[in-house]
Design a protein around this nucleic acid. Structure first.
Lengths: 256, 256
DNA sequence: ATAATGCGTTTCATAATGCGGAATAATGTA
DNA sequence: TACATTATTCCGCATTATGAAACGCATTAT
């Protein structure tokens, strides 16, 4: 009863994904009634698809009449390739960094023209910045996204700017190719990037790149905090954490 | 070209899951050729389904011709309800326990007649016991599974025994209702359970239950180690870890 | 250079597949 | 107990996914 779903060419798959997404949106288990209403599917259709998904453990059942997401999703998610070694390597370092700064730490990878959040460590505070694992953001409004663009070279940045049009998320978003290029240049030169309320008002980030054995930038690490709590002295800590994760991935950072 | 797939009543979903599983089996990205061969699907069919899954980010693409599991799986897995708060609460304690004993620590929940591994902490050693997140094992061959049976009561154990027939995984598996009942009785009485090479030769476990606010056993926590390295003095550590996780879930353990 | 091979992708006629209305069963409620 | 609501099964129909074949595009072999 809300958003229009992407159409993939296979109806059943669109519908199955719609049901999985509806289940993900629910706080707890959900009934067939709710799910068919939520997705706009005929109850009998929703039932049949849910039964099929149950058969594969993509959904599970509580009691007789309640559906929830199933454990097979955990197995599949554990094999999301790009994030496998990376997440394992990053997690303890991310927790260290979170404890150092007391703010949310995120790990992202590039996926086309966006970054995807693949791992996080959140502090135990009332007010904190919280990203959903698997969610996305455009490259030009995030600290690590800007570094990833910088890594790809000036032409790639221009391509990106034309392709996406640099939509503004706040008044601070780098909305012109020129301002974006300047920002990226400065960020690449000093080795870390900032996001000064460019994605969301009140939120500031400090980000660095994470590299693997071959020196390729495979991920981004960032601290996200309410703007008024962000401190410049975190920069070396974020850099240190990025270096540690890169080392765990086999990157030799010893270049003068 | 291998296992027979469960048939769910919806062909496309069976096939889509087969493709996802095939991708999960691959160490890295896989080509259409490989995937269609692996699943026995016509290349054109596999292509169409993979394209549909891509549209929903359930699969992603590397370069032009390589498929891999997609980031939307991370988002969905993050919402697998039973494991949400639980995993978050358990993770730091699991890491503490892993560092104490230097062996693999697993968190499991009951799912029908099996336990499902939902979280783990593995030590940095050459030889270690390693469970795949999302994989399953029958209740009667695992330490925590036996506790979960005990929690359900004698009748439930007998039902289970008749339903599943207590298949033997090793010579040590409790293969009779009598031996299983005795073991479970003893385990419940002392508050922890052992698995003495009952699931796999050479592997021993120590397990305890994790409880939530209401006192319900929502999960199991266990240490799995090569049999010759397992130490009885770990028992209080495992109990301590179980208690800490339960406390983080709101359970008041102050009884007796 | 040129042909040949081996992929990935698109097209399209066909029938098998999933669809949804309606009937039935199960569950919850007054 | 009767009623209302929800879950599940059934089944004829048309939509849907199917897979053979053709096409495009590299890369490799000749």
């Amino acid at each position: 009863m809300n958003n229009e779903l992407p159409v993939s060419g296979i109806q059943v798959i669109d519908r199955a994904v719609a049901l999985l997404d509806a289940l993900a949106r629910e706080p707890g288990p959900a009934s067939l009634k709710v799910l068919s209403a939520e997705t706009g599917l005929h109850p009998s259709t929703a039932f049949r698809i849910l039964a099929a998904l149950s058969e594969h453990d993509l959904v599970g059942r509580d009691g007789a009449n309640l559906y929830r997401l199933g454990p097979h999703l955990l197995r599949l998610a554990g094999r999301v390739s790009v994030a496998l070694d990376l997440r394992e390597a990053a997690r303890p370092v991310m927790e260290w960094l979170r404890d150092q700064v007391g703010e949310s730490v995120n790990l992202t990878v590039r996926e086309g023209d966006q970054v995807v959040y693949v791992e996080r460590a959140i502090p135990n505070r009332m007010m904190r910045v919280e990203q959903v694992i698997g969610s996305r953001a455009p490259l030009h409004v995030t600290a690590v996204g800007k570094l990833m663009l910088g890594e790809a070279g000036k032409e790639a940045i221009q391509d990106y700017a034309r392709r996406c049009g640099l939509p503004a998320y706040t008044a601070n978003t780098r909305g012109t190719e020129r301002s974006l290029l300047l920002d990226i240049d400065a960020s690449m030169a000093r080795g870390y990037a900032l996001d000064d309320e460019e994605a969301e008002l009140g939120v500031g980030c400090i980000g660095v790149l994470v590299r693997d054995t071959g020196g390729a930038a495979v991920a981004g690490l960032s601290v996200s905090a309410p703007m008024e709590r962000r401190r410049p002295e975190w920069v070396p800590l974020v850099e240190e954490a990025g270096r540690r994760i890169s080392e765990r991935l086999g990157y030799k950072s010893s270049q003068g």
